[in-house]
Amino acid sequence: PLPSAQHNNALRPTAGMPDSALSLPSLVDMGFTDAQAEQIHEAVCKVRGGSATKHALSTLTALFGLGFNPSSVLKMLQKCPELYTVRESQLQQCINYLRKLGLVEGSLQRTLAHYPQILTVPVKTIKHVVLLLREKCLFTVQQVADIFRDSPAIVLEDLSQTEYKFQYVYFRMGIKQAEMVKTRLFRFTLDEVRCRHCFLERRGLYQTPDKRGQTSIINPKLDSILKIDLDTYLSEIANASAEEYDVFQRLMARECQEQDQQYDSIEAD
């Protein structure tokens, strides 16, 4: 149940708000159960810094304002305790920017519930990711919105890793942006992608398309390489034993690590 309008009014922070704004009774007033209120109270007390109370209050207000119910709000705070200390302006800018990106109501809420950490990320950082996706990876506006909706954690990933992952899938695997979005590529680590792809490639089951986009075998879809559990991948796509894949993963990890070291030493020369 949504908290009543009256509650929301009562929550609007005012200058010189007494600490009692986050007292147990007022939390219960907001709609939390006694147990939930206690958890929040405890968490706020644990956060150091005098401004915690103020920020906690504005965060609660903002989250309720987005239509989350008390138990969803609690879950988000548990997932990301940093939310207690986030400035109100940061929070609002972030929400506004995500809306501007095209995360409409519903998908915005789902994204935030799934990955509340995104609210602590400076808009500038998010903008860098968007710029990369738009200009270097040539995703459309809609595709970028889809990526943020499905894989919000992309905002905290290293930009060069994200770019490399895109290039790997685009050039080595010959896969277009639309299929990447559909497969939710950015949910997978580069190591996972590379390992599953290279395993197939070395078995002769995947080919990089030539300039005209042609291959002499039919490549499996990205979906059936990444979006299935390991057992199904092995039995239906790779046709291999778990033992082989286990050894392969360890060999790949060492190969990649040694290749990186090699490049590093070349750069140092």
Binding site: R202, R203, G204, A240, E244, F248, L251, R254, E255
Partner: peptide, 23 residues
């Protein structure tokens, strides 16, 4: 090898191939 050994080894070739191409 892809031509010659997939004919000679049949089903086994992919597993031999990935091993040959790895350390």
């Amino acid at each position: 090898f892809d031509t010659a050994y997939s004919a000679e080894l049949g089903q086994l070739w992919p597993s031999v191939r990935v091993a040959l191409l790895s350390e």
